[in-house]
Write a protein that binds this DNA or RNA. Structure first.
Length: 564
RNA sequence: GACCUGGUAGCUCAGUUGGUAGAGCACCUCCCUUUUAAGGAGGUGGUCCUGGGUUCGAGCCCCAGCCAGGUCACCA
């Protein structure tokens, strides 16, 4: 492995620490007495008291016999004051002069014991009496500095590096950590809301023989012992409804779903959806539940129901308007498409500038009209209701209009945040709807839809009237944390692998280094300079030429080796 | 999948018509006992994403590729 100069220095420091009898990676528990946030937010209670802290050293300002450093623990950052005569003495200044000033680096993890005080300029600090090395850091961190005006300098901002090395991102970019803390607050808030109502959190299979509950391309894998294909789930709907059949009144699951489709700033191949099913409820009830839930989530995570999303301030305060989808299309296109057949709908689409083709049925056309002409208008939370039957195969027919279904999507900031319905529980109707979907997909859709016979069998035993909802958790977190990209709310978004550098053996490195300073060179000179045996030499030079790092050329003046 | 933009030191970025690869921070040496983007003096550090090509000469121009970001398409 090729080490940078900075890495070599740190490895040398590591060695010197060991020579001084200091274990750079000690095994012992390090007992802290408090956290940085406790101290900085309750200075009066801590002033003059002794504390023990542990954390990462994020910066260091050395001023001869005294220094300041910034210590960062899981709760925050604070300054520590390190004085030669406090952690060592004039007669034996090793701990300060050598260990602290020379052998420690930014990024090292240390423990300190000392007294809380305020400096002349008023900064809360700890005067260190004892310093313990807890873990030596061998790679230099990016140096992010914030000036007196709060302006950040040299921010570690390259998206690729931040996502590939999220640990570095988390160390140096405090706001990133905040996003993920908020993410957990959001899911905790939802769990609390449901648990208080007695809803049961459950787990259902991720590996499924039939990927159902949505129209999406699945990932496929293979089970060796069963010698059969298995799919990673694209939704958990059909399993949760089986549990309602089984007699649970309300079940929910935070589920990682997987869809083998395009990736962009709002789509990751694996993502999280919270699905909830409650027996004896309908979609009207679900709307009331949803607005109550989201208002609570906003307050629990942000302290207020008003949330800034990009350039908009969005209010999650309940209630939210209910707009039937056909009404929305009438408002935003001027066309009343209620009851229209495929041909007339296509005319409308063409008139408003939407391209149509033969594979599009009534449902798809209405979906296009809404998606293109209406969706982006709904910035404030709005329930779009009563979708056409054709685009909702798992939804109960509308109680007053058999062309429609009892379904709503919740739109926020022009995007779908949740999708819910009065669940279809008529097993015969359900089978027909699945078959209709199959016909549709035969029309040209490449997402094969499977009929889950066991799911229909379950419905045949009888499922109570039930309302269900799926809430996109990543999208919800994006809204609540004002992030425009899903990658910002996933710790480890999917990335293509980094290209592997060609690894050289030790012998190859030796020869390569000689070549670097002297190329081309006579083959025999290179061989003798390398000091390798005949066999090793042969293996090494063949390795280098195979990897196209060097080449051997037969010329009039002899055999030469040169770098390529 | 198409198009646009980018990839240069540990980090953030300059880099002239194609002519010895730069700055700030970090790092190393030295000075400095309440500083704070600490300061002062000196110094080290490079696979210019990869591979070809053009050229006396390529970070720069051409071709192909890799990775990322963005826009669109596809997709809920």
């Amino acid at each position: 492995m090729q080490l940078s100069a900075l890495e070599i220095v740190r490895r040398e420091s590591l060695q010197k620490l060991r020579e001084l009898g200091i274990n750079p990676y000690p095994a012992e528990e390090f007992k802290t007495t408090t956290t940085i946030k406790q101290i900085t937010s309750n200075f009066n209670n801590f002033e003059g008291k002794e504390v023990v802290l542990a954390g990462r050293m994020m910066s260091r300002r050395i001023m001869g016999k005294a220094s300041f450093a910034e210590l960062k623990d899981a709760s925050g950052r604070m300054q520590i004051y390190v004085n030669r005569d406090e952690i060592s003495s004039e007669e034996n200044p090793t701990m300060y002069n050598t260990v602290f000033k020379k052998l420690l680096d930014m990024g090292d993890i240390i423990g300190v014991k000392g007294i809380v005080f305020k400096t002349n300029v008023g900064e809360v600090s700890v005067k260190v009496k004892e310093l313990t090395v807890l873990s030596k850091s061998l790679r230099p961190l990016p140096v992010v500095k914030t000036d007196a005006d709060g302006k950040v300098h040299d921010a570690f901002s390259d998206a690729e590096q931040r996502y590939r090395q999220r640990y570095v991102d988390l160390i140096v970019n405090d706001h990133v950590k905040e996003t993920f803390i908020k993410r957990t607050k959001i899911t905790n808030s939802i769990r609390n809301f449901f648990n208080e109502r007695g809803y049961l959190e459950v787990e259902t299979p991720i590996l499924q023989p039939i990927p159902g509950g949505a129209a999406a391309r699945p990932f496929i894998t293979h089970h060796n012992a069963l010698d059969m294909p298995l799919y990673l789930r694209i939704a958990n709907e059909l399993y949760l409804k089986r549990l309602i059949v089984g007699g649970f009144d309300a079940v929910y699951e935070f589920s990682k779903d997987f869809r083998n489709e395009g990736m962009d700033r709002t789509h990751n191949p694996e993502f999280t959806v919270m699905e909830l099913y409650v027996a004896y409820k309908d979609y009207n009830w679900m709307m009331r539940m949803t607005e109550e839930l989201l208002e609570k989530v906003a307050i629990d995570s942000n302290g207020t129901s008003e949330v800034q999303i990009g350039e908009h301030t969005v209010s999650f305060k309940a209630p939210y308007p209910r707009v039937p989808i056909l009404e929305a299309i009438k408002i935003h296109t001027g066309y009343d498409v209620a009851g229209m057949k495929e041909d007339k709908l296509k005319d409308v689409c063409r008139k408003v500038g939407i391209e149509v083709d033969d594979t599009m049925g009534v449902g798809k056309l209405i979906d296009e009209l809404f998606g293109e002409k209406c969706e982006h208008h709904y910035i404030q939370p709005t329930f779009i209701t009563d979708y056409p039957k054709e685009m909702s195969p798992l939804t109960k027919e509308h109680r007053t209009n058999s062309d429609l279904t009892e379904r709503f999507e919740l739109m926020v900031n022009g995007k779908e945040l949740a999708n819910a319905y009065s669940e279809l529980n008529d097993p015969i109707d359900q089978r027909e709807r699945f078959e209709d979907q199959l016909k549709l997909s035969a029309k040209g859709d490449d997402e094969a839809m499977f009929i889950d016979q066991d799911f229909i069998r379950a419905l045949e035993y009888g499922m109570p009237p039930t309302s269900g909802i799926g809430i996109g958790i990543d999208r919800l977190v994006m809204f609540m944390t004002n992030n425009a990209s899903i990658q910002e709310v996933l710790f480890f978004p999917q990335m293509k692998p980094e290209k592997k550098a060609i690894e050289m053996t030790d012998d190859e490195k030796v020869v390569f280094n000689i070549l670097k300073s002297n190329t081309p060179i006579l083959l025999n000179d290179l061989k003798s300079q390398s000091g390798l045996s005949n066999k090793k030499w042969d293996k090494t030079i063949k390795g280098l030429t195979r990897n196209k790092l060097a080449s051997v050329n037969n010329t009039d003046t002899g055999l030469f080796v040169e770098l390529t």
